[in-house]
Nucleic acid binder design. Sequence first.
DNA 1: CAGAATCCCCACGGATACTG
DNA 2: CAGTATCCGTGGGGATTCTG
Lengths: 136, 136
Amino acid sequence: MAGQRTLSGPCTAWPEDSAFIREVLDRIGDKWTVLVISTLGSGPLRYSDLQASVPGISQRMLTVTLKELERDGLATRTAYAEVPPRVVYELTDLGRSLQEAVLALAGWAASNHAAVAAHRKQHEATGVGRAATGAR
Amino acid sequence: MAGQRTLSGPCTAWPEDSAFIREVLDRIGDKWTVLVISTLGSGPLRYSDLQASVPGISQRMLTVTLKELERDGLATRTAYAEVPPRVVYELTDLGRSLQEAVLALAGWAASNHAAVAAHRKQHEATGVGRAATGAR
DNA sequence: CAGAATCCCCACGGATACTG
DNA sequence: CAGTATCCGTGGGGATTCTG
């Protein structure tokens, strides 16, 4: 009962947090969270400005994403009781720290984009095979 | 023509690589890539061991994931012409570098899991409201 | 053993319309 | 302006079956 620990899984690296880590990966993997976070990284923005600054995002997705960020303590929502209403979103320190972490990954992507592209090209030329000769 | 640059998008941060960055985020956001990479991080493994080491993964997903990794130059596939067949997968340097980058993110997750959980709990207690009084 | 092929479900997310 | 509610298409990915 003491020794084993099931071994060899990636789970051994992060025993109990693994579920939460997956959750984070899912979130940063979704289509908008990272975009919204990095947009808010430049400073507080109101809903409409946010929508304008993240080209292609729908109201639905912007709202959903913002709610998740707020819920997780990554961003704050401040509503001013005026008319017309004004709501401002801003990254928290926690949000900024996540942004930095993601930026590191983005850094990897930028640095290794060329290498990956090269491998893809080579792989295409090498193995994909079947496409050759048998045009049909 | 000089000044504008469309401004305010997250795109301004990573001008042309943005598409590729999304691609990387999508990949690390998918359900298995990170698990497989981190499992291979411990050393070369054959197909069946890999499947055993990543609990819950299906043949289909393991195969698909490995093909992507190979295609992108993140892992290598070595087949031994024996019977029964033996195929060994191993991370490349590129793959290891990605693993490190992802590990940084996992580190963030592990470090801030508690903070996020706390925010969620508080958020639940605070705003969710509606559940109270008006049971129906 | 390693994988390819097929079927199928359902959650992610886009478009649209309505509201405080 | 800042959302909410609804409908619906797409594809990620699980289960199963078959092959070299």
